[in-house]
Write a protein that binds this DNA or RNA. Structure first.
Lengths: 201, 201
DNA sequence: ACCTGAACACCGTTCAAGT
DNA sequence: ACCTGAACACCGTTCAAGT
């Protein structure tokens, strides 16, 4: 009781502990977090405005792992975009259980903004106008977010008692047991996307 | 108190009330739900196993609005897929606030299964093998889910204090104030997807 | 069979009290 | 400045008690 000689907590330590909890259990509660940090729940509020801010810190953590390319105008724009989207998705796929937490809030991180800037510059170079640039970025966001969610999906995605037709059953059979099913599907989707966009640009 | 002459509740009435609450407020709690139904919270458990089952009922409601085409092998497969994805996405975009609730659980509805069956049959007709069929369906799911989430995103998606480059700013400017921005982006993405897939098939 | 009220174990958050 | 314990208003769920 009373304040300790040097602080037990910090925003960083709280974020790290929350990240570990999400990775391990798929979520976090303030009591859990406090227990993990050997601290009382109310102590957290000395460093953090509330639970929502912690979620925001986690988003920053994930987002900051996205590798932004230094401007290399000699590489084809499709290669630049492909690398960026791979990194974008990998950053969130690393913490798949985090994504359902994030979808409830809007994007607001500074690193995200940098990423969108890089994308916009690259797409402009590819010949897209401003309106199409917004559409393309939206498409990429939808695709990456959806793909990251897919990583969190259960291994056997559909096994209700419903009738599965032979065509769908055959398709499902190619995926079961493969632990890189989601990665594989992402690479496929990425190729489809870039092919479709190349025709446009 | 004691049981009423005719039941006050039913699974359907509970689901409808929950749907209205989600549409109005973006979520629901058991006490809220009970209040809306003029009933005690504990009464709900006579008709429903718990909150999770109610969420599942909401998923069914949204999913059952997806229009499945009767098999028309004379239409081009891209047209069949386009209509299906539009309906799929519209069904969830109708309740955008619902989507963050749904992402936490796996898909398990019978109508969903029917939809996947139709997709698998159509893709097979288009010439996709079983493995690619799974990849394409995954891609479509990611895209539709992501797009539905996009509908729920705030009108001004990014307005942090960060630096917005001129290219991204120009792109953003084309979207602000347009209430059909998400619809427009979806149609664009759908076209890109189908163009990319046509090259594959 | 179906509704109620009391009860339980939880949650996020606040705040006076300590050093 | 920073931690604590008690307290508050909430949540989902259970269950004996009623008819």
């Amino acid at each position: 009781m009373g304040r300790p000689p040097s602080p037990l907590l910090s925003t960083e330590r709280i974020a790290s502990a929350a990240m570990e909890l999400v990775a391990a259990t798929g979520g976090f509660t303030m009591p859990d977090l406090a227990r993990k940090l050997h601290v009382s729940p109310s102590s957290l509020y000395n460093h953090v405005a509330g639970r929502d801010q912690i979620v925001e810190l986690l988003r920053e953590r994930a987002m900051s792992e996205v590798q932004l390319p230094d401007d290399q105008p000699d590489r084809p724009w499709t290669a630049v975009v492909a690398d960026l989207l791979r990194s974008y998705r990998r950053s969130f796929a690393r913490y798949p259980r985090l994504i359902p937490l994030l979808t409830a809030y809007p994007v607001n991180s500074s690193h995200a903004m940098q990423m969108y800037n890089v994308l916009a510059v690259t797409l402009r170079r590819a010949g897209f106008g401003p309106a199409d640039t917004l559409r393309v970025i939206t498409l990429m966001d939808c695709f990456v977010l959806g793909s990251a969610l897919d990583v969190a999906a259960p291994d056997e995605p559909w096994h209700s008692g419903e009738e599965v037709g032979p065509e769908f059953a055959a398709a499902l059979a190619t995926g079961i047991g493969k632990d890189d099913r989601a990665d594989d599907a992402f690479e496929f989707g990425l190729a489809v996307l870039l092919r479709g966009l190349s025709a446009e640009a």
